[in-house]
Design a protein around this nucleic acid. Structure first.
Lengths: 358, 358
DNA sequence: CTGAAAGCGCTAACAA
DNA sequence: TTGTTAGCGCTTTCAG
């Protein structure tokens, strides 16, 4: 015989309305309420009307938590971003959000703040079943306690970055780099500088190696180029500029390729303040195509990434994988160069005239 | 007599490890596993060790969903932002995230994309019990189906915006505006322009009214100032510049106050390209203190908002309210003017010399 | 210190 | 078409 025990409820009932109250008010079972919401065709018009009325009267909203527990999915996607303050990512996030919203998913943003320690939190989130899928904008797979995020049995895709072993949505860094170098080489530049992304970053590697390859193809030795270590952010553009300015004027590169617009903009401003003229003395090219590139002086030649599209597409392949139960598939987007004011032919130099005259 | 029914499980068991499997492996009850995690002191060392071992062996991570259902809280905060692509908000988000992470909360970002239709989604989220608290960076309270987000019995606070009836964390727009005008008036400007935020926006109203008040106090008629409608974003700065350029050179304002750095930067670039010199012909002041203000030409005089701090503080008052069960309390942060290159005394003009001579 | 069992809100399988 | 009921994973009484 079952013993009657008084209800053991959790803390603070918070007074929110449950499906039971709606069912009671409508004079039907909870199952009917549930069905009226999910599969209205299978509920009689009268019952449906009563339920609708009861819902309106009570202001009922189904509990997402209860639903998630039962359905074993949360309809939430985690987006891991290296640094949320970077406007480059912001636009991608918008694209992701647009697509996700349209597909009935919400998103949690996992901001790493460029700190590895922050990864643990999101690894737990994924293993804890808090999200249905993951989109990575970071250059590596978050890991903690010996577990990598992609091993949780949840689909993962990378956006804008190529992580070995993971499906991706991105523009091809190699092709993009080649476009940039084709432009600079076509302008007849021979002395180059390269402001890099953080070491080990997959985009950085792709861009740099294509940069070097272009140099070789043009009969130049990649080793002669100047390399300045950066991290995609503004400050490292300033640092690169200081190193540039420390060079003898005659030995400075005449063309500088920055692996991000942020670095390019900070670089331009810093050398410009020191009296170097752009593009007369030095040409500068950026990468990403952030909006501010059109509002600095001179306006920045850059390789725009279709960020919104990249985000949308990333979300789309993930959602598709979620629906089908398969793995997301990789997509590569086209890119082209946006030529503005910051690039021009190199200065003639002390010997420039001679060569011509000869 | 109870009839044996076979287990009715949901779709795809997904094979994730539950507390039961850990309990079985450790040879204890699920209650003990739960306690070993939450209140280890109340578990015997042996049991604790066995549980720890079992957890390690299985790779168990507690289900956040199961926990939420039981605990009736999700440890998640919703942050509603008008437009996630705006770098101004990004930095605030970072501050919020920092504080939330430290307090054991996660965050969901609700991107409105400046569209009212998007509000419904987040209103449902809150009423559906998906979040424990809300932080609003938007100028109004999201509402849908006749329900306002702050009526869900969940604490809500506003960051950087003043919404009547809601606790807030922000810098005082009136005082900030006064600081700007003091600077411009001190430089002896007499003809002013104002590039506004979106109509009805609370910050916009605060800034504009203080702008007008400062004018009156200086013996000028606010009605003589030029007002250009903007929306805080880059494009509206360009539009304002076009209107400025359409004015007779002699009737143009000599000082322009833009209610956001974005508009100020776009305004400067546009009139600069048209041959207007800044600050010699026109002084420009922005609002917010975004990083790019230091990298445009000329560098922008602005009123920096302590965005990271604003975010942290917003999260802090919310978390405190969550803990105490009370309402969040309002905080006002100090601000000061950052004077850079874009402001200077007005040009003498055709009659400037005369006055002096007289 | 530990285990049994109830139940958070919801949905799906089954029976009627 | 509808109701009954089990159970998703977890925590927490209550009893031992």
């Amino acid at each position: 015989v079952a013993r009657i025990t008084r209800t053991r409820r959790g803390p603070d009932a918070k007074g929110s309305i449950t499906i039971r109250e709606v069912a009671a008010k409508a004079g039907v079972s909870t199952a009917t309420v549930s069905r009226a919401l999910a599969i209205p065709d299978q509920v009689s018009p009268e019952a449906r009307a009563r339920v609708t009325a009861a819902i309106k009267a009570t202001g009922y909203t189904p509990s997402a938590v209860g639903r998630s527990l039962r359905a074993r999915n949360t309809k939430i996607v985690l987006v891991v971003v290296p640094n949320i303050a970077n406007p480059f990512f912001a636009e991608i996030l918008r694209g992701i959000d647009d697509e996700l919203a349209a597909s009935g998913y919400g998103l949690i943003i996992g901001n790493l703040d460029n700190l590895v320690e922050r990864e643990a939190r999101y690894v737990d989130l994924v293993f804890g079943g808090q999200v249905d899928g993951v989109l990575l904008l970071s250059g590596r797979i978050p890991a903690a306690n010996g577990r990598r995020m992609n091993e949780a049995g949840v689909p993962v895709a990378a956006v804008c970055v190529n992580i070995p072993g993971l499906p991706y949505v991105m523009v091809n860094d190699g092709k993009a780099s080649a476009l940039i170098m084709e432009h600079l080489l076509g302008l007849r530049h021979r002395r180059f500088g390269y402001i890099s992304g953080p070491p080990g970053n997959a985009n950085e590697i792709g861009r740099r190696s294509a940069f070097r390859k272009a140099l070789s193809s043009a009969g130049l030795d990649p080793i002669d180029a100047a390399y300045w270590q950066g991290d995609f952010m503004l400050d490292s553009g300033v640092a690169a500029a200081r190193q540039f300015l420390a060079l003898d004027a005659g030995r400075r590169p005449t063309a500088v390729y920055a692996a991000s617009d942020h670095m390019a903009i900070a670089f331009m401003k810093t050398i410009g303040s020191a009296g170097v003229r752009i593009p007369e003395d030095v040409s500068v090219v950026g990468f990403d195509g952030i909006e501010f590139g059109a509002f600095v002086t001179p306006t920045l030649t850059t390789l725009p990434q279709p960020r919104h599209e990249l985000g949308r597409m990333g979300a789309r392949v993930l959602v598709e994988a979620l629906r089908s139960g398969g793995a997301p598939e990789s997509v590569e987007l086209d890119a082209w160069l946006l030529v503005r004011e910051s690039t021009a032919p190199p200065p003639r130099g002390p010997h420039g005239g001679k060569r011509r005259a000869g």
